[in-house]
Amino acid sequence: MTTHEETTAAGAVDEAEATQRALKAQLFHDARQEPGKPCPCGESDGMHGEECDCEEGAVLVHTMRIADGENVTEWQDTFRCSYGCIEYTATLSLPDTPWGVKETVGGPHGPHTQVRVFPGIIHGQEHHGIVQPSPC
């Protein structure tokens, strides 16, 4: 028989592990991606190492990953030209690496869903650790 305390403790372990995965996905040890070498983020498709038209030898370098929107598995990656001429962003889904959890909370107008961002995660719309959904 599982008690409420045991369930809560197991959930805390899962959230701690998820937070560690999200922090690892977000932070790069070395943001300089070299052509032909794997990106520090662990990905290799998309714009990683793609040539830029501005200068011979210019490539797109993966410089940042932040949490994005209200879907807790979507991240926004930023790629910058190695010569500084342009910057691109792309949305990436990492189903096994959520950056937060959706929670139902009570409020003056009844229960509603909000997203709680894990500690240490950078979110484009972050407001005190909670991303509020847009009113419908």
Rank of each mutant, 00 (worst) to 15 (best):
Arg65Gln: 07
Met1Glu: 11
Glu17Gln: 11
Asp45Trp: 15
Asp68Phe: 10
Asp96Leu: 13
Ile122Thr: 15
Met47Phe: 14
His112Arg: 09
Gln114Ser: 02
Val117Arg: 02
Asp30Ser: 09
Ile121Arg: 00
Gly107Leu: 15
Val105Asp: 03
Thr73Trp: 09
His62Tyr: 09
Ala22Val: 00
Gly84Cys: 04
Glu50Pro: 00
Ile86His: 14
Gln132Met: 08
Glu55Asp: 15
Ala25Met: 03
Leu27Tyr: 08
His127Phe: 14
Ala67Lys: 02
Phe118Leu: 00
Val13Ser: 04
Ala25Ile: 02
Arg80Glu: 15
Asp68Tyr: 10
Ser134Tyr: 14
Thr7Val: 14
Gly120Leu: 01
Phe79Cys: 01
Gly106Asn: 07
Thr78Gln: 13
Thr8Arg: 05
Ala58Ser: 13
Asp30Thr: 11
Gly42Arg: 02
Thr91Gly: 15
Cys41Phe: 04
Cys41Ile: 04
Thr7Leu: 10
Ile66Pro: 00
Asp14Gln: 14
Ala10Val: 15
Ser82Gln: 03
Thr2Ile: 15
Val72Gln: 11
Tyr88Glu: 06
Val72Trp: 05
Lys37Asp: 07
Gly57Asp: 09
His62Leu: 13
Thr73Asn: 09
Ala22His: 01
Asp96Thr: 07
Gly69Cys: 04
Thr73Pro: 03
Gly36Glu: 01
Glu17Ile: 12
Ala16Pro: 00
Gln114His: 02
Lys37Thr: 14
Thr113Lys: 12
Gly36Met: 03
Glu126Met: 13
Phe28Arg: 02
Pro98Gly: 00
Trp75Arg: 02
His123Ile: 03
Glu15Ile: 14
Thr113Cys: 05
Gln20Tyr: 06
Leu27Phe: 06
Cys136Glu: 08
Pro35Trp: 08
Ser134His: 13
Gly11Ala: 14
Arg21Cys: 03
Leu23Gly: 04
Lys37Trp: 12
Glu6Arg: 04
Thr73Leu: 04
Gly36Gln: 02
His48Leu: 05
His48Ser: 05
Met47Gln: 15
Val105His: 01
Leu23Ile: 05
Trp99Gln: 01
Pro119Tyr: 00
Thr78Lys: 06
Ala58Asn: 12
Gly49Val: 07
Met47Gly: 11
Phe118Ile: 00
Arg32Thr: 15
Pro38Leu: 08
Cys81Asn: 07
Leu92His: 08
Val101Gly: 04
Ala9Phe: 13
His29Tyr: 09
